[in-house]
Write a protein that binds this DNA or RNA. Structure first.
Length: 179
DNA sequence: CGTCAGATTCTCT
DNA sequence: GAGAATCTGACGC
């Protein structure tokens, strides 16, 4: 997909990511998964976003151009794969939370930490461009039924914790178990 | 340099 | 439903 797809606010991109195919050329091995669950993070105003604490070494990639990858490690164990969207400095991002395995997937993919492990995604992909790197999105199939909910695991986000910024295909059996 | 908490997951009970 | 695993960035001293 081209720059136009990513250069919009994260809520729009997150919704449109459903059904798209995430591809990772892992040293010659093409790993593919169809995206069935995402979350949008709306920049510095969004108390659930890392960007709300301002620009730091870790979050600086989010303040850059759309179409770049933001990966971070959480709890010392799990990697979270995000896509930077919207215009420069808006710090919008989309978290990929679950995919349906298509090719060369090892293990389960029904959670943000699990899908990174199954697709072998980690900090090496941080700050890469989806427009010319080894990771990109392809056109996929239309999601059957798009449903919205509050985001997972961000109870600390005060006024933002109930915002309906999680999107998933309600017909997919690969969405994360949490509701 | 020490502390602390985290956009999670697994393993029990 | 609770607790542990395990490490990095952010922040305070």
């Amino acid at each position: 997909l081209g720059l136009d797809f990513y250069a919009r606010t994260a809520d729009l991109v997150a919704k449109d990511c459903l059904g798209k195919v995430l591809v990772f050329n892992d040293d010659g091995v093409l790993r593919k998964g169809r995206i069935v669950e995402t979350e949008a993070y709306l920049g510095v105003q969004d108390l659930a976003s890392h960007a709300s604490k301002g620009q730091t070494k870790r979050t600086q990639i989010m303040f850059g151009s759309a179409g770049f990858v933001y990966v971070y490690l959480i709890y010392g164990i799990y990697h979270m794969f995000n896509i930077v969207t919207d215009k420069k400095d808006s710090a919008h991002a989309v978290l990929i939370r679950a995919v349906e395995p298509l090719e060369n997937i090892v293990g389960k993919t029904d959670g943000p930490g699990k899908l990174c492990k199954a697709m072998n995604l980690d900090m090496k992909q941080n700050k890469l461009s989806l427009l010319d790197g080894p990771v990109w999105l392809e056109q996929g199939s239309t999601p059957e039924r798009i449903q919205t909910s509050a985001r997972i695991g961000i109870d600390y986000a005060k006024d933002w914790k109930d915002a309906p910024l999680r999107f998933f295909d309600a017909r997919s059996s690969f969405v994360s178990p949490r509701r």
